Simulated scan of single mutants.
Amino acid sequence: MRFSGLARALTHLSASRFITSSSKQTVLVTGASGFLGSVVVDELLAAGYRVRGTARSAKAPRVQKAYASFGDRFQVAVVDDLTTSDLTDAFKDINALIHVGSPLAGKAPQNTLVKGSVDGTLHVLDAALKAGVSKAVVTASIFSLASPAQIHIPNMIGASDWSNETEESAAAAGLLATYGLGKKLAEKALWDFASAHPEVDVTTIHPGFLYGAPGHGQVIDKPVDGTNGYVYQLISGPAGRPVPAQGMPAATHVRDAALLHVLALKAAPSPASKPKRIVAVGPDGRFTWLQAVQWLYETRPELRARLPTVTRKETHNLDEWSRWDSSSAKEIVGFEKFRGWREIVGDSIDGALRREKELGIASAQ
């Protein structure tokens, strides 16, 4: 069964109730050319908002072209560095901020992940404050709730938890832990800012590993990018390869994460002493790559030649991993139904296959 068309229709239907009240508001989205940022832009436009998205100068023309059909409801603001660029023009006549842009593990140099995450967040928030913006929604991470080591323990993690990652533990653990430390410290700095400036109401969204089809404005010249590469490896690689080793089973459909950002714009204000932190990993966001491969064998016979070989000696196990308390999504914005892992995998695969077709890439059989 193909999920992407239905999922998109349902998402836009759920967002449509905001069109009347949102049509005069303009939202600035940082990182609009990225995976999550592009989907946030899609959801905002579907909900009736005007949108200005930031993108680097090399990517800005492609982002603008992707949304040309929306006329003046979408604009691009060229911002080459969220930590240092002058953001005055980007924030002109802006009503709310959704800050998505952040250094990514595997793309930014490891030694810049922490500083870039913290400095970028504070630079954007300072510009928002100067522009009189009173509503900010910021993309955080499950890694500010718990370190990778904490997640690899069978416990429950929720919106009041904080990672115990330190500079020393991150340096010893490697890239993912360093990325997580950056997200934790950036969020700590965010809430310090919120305490000092109560006139700015803040909400944080904490997705897990993001999967799904990209938004219209993602600038990418390969089938997938970022975390979608973990799903793409299920249909790319030499014949007879084994099922990939189990990674962290904490998945979020990118459309769910994006919609939570949009819904948070309507969340009731609250003081920084009662932070609005939304855990964005649903109860069916935990799965193994073995489960995914077996499901694809059953439901996508046309892909069987591209799938890994199941040896029945795999030892994938969810029992050793944490679970996620996502009740904050319902409590803060009324969001109850997260997409499950089958839809997450299916939409990721469909998005990659569409991109292969657009790029003229022959399927590896």
Score class of each variant (00 low, 15 high):
M1P: 05
M1D: 09
A7P: 00
I19R: 15
I19S: 11
S21Y: 06
S23N: 13
S23L: 12
L28K: 02
L28N: 02
V39H: 03
V40D: 02
V41E: 04
D42W: 06
L45P: 05
A46H: 09
A46N: 07
T54N: 06
R56D: 06
Q64Y: 04
K65P: 00
S69K: 13
S69H: 12
G71S: 08
F74W: 11
Q75C: 05
V76Y: 03
V76F: 09
D81V: 10
L82N: 08
T84I: 06
D93S: 01
I94A: 02
N95F: 00
I98G: 02
V100P: 01
G101M: 06
A108N: 07
N111D: 15
V118W: 05
D119Q: 06
L122K: 10
V124L: 07
A127R: 04
A127G: 03
K130F: 01
K130A: 14
A131K: 04
S134Q: 14
V137N: 02
V137E: 03
V138Y: 04
V138R: 05
A140F: 01
H152R: 14
P154G: 09
I157E: 07
N164S: 14
E167C: 03
E168S: 14
E168T: 07
L176G: 00
A177L: 03
T178D: 09
S195W: 02
A196E: 14
V202R: 08
V202I: 15
T204L: 10
I205P: 00
G212H: 09
H216S: 14
H216C: 05
G217T: 12
G217S: 10
S236C: 02
G237C: 03
R241L: 03
P242E: 11
P244C: 06
A250H: 08
H253V: 04
L259P: 00
L265A: 01
K266G: 00
S273C: 02
R277E: 06
V281H: 04
W289I: 01
A292Y: 10
Q294V: 08
R300D: 09
R300Q: 11
T309S: 13
T311Y: 11
H316C: 04
N317Y: 01
E320T: 14
W321L: 08
W321G: 02
S322T: 13
S322F: 08
E331V: 09
G334R: 10
G334C: 10
E343T: 09
L353H: 02
K357H: 14
K357V: 09
K357R: 15
I361P: 00
S363K: 15
Q365F: 10
Q365P: 12
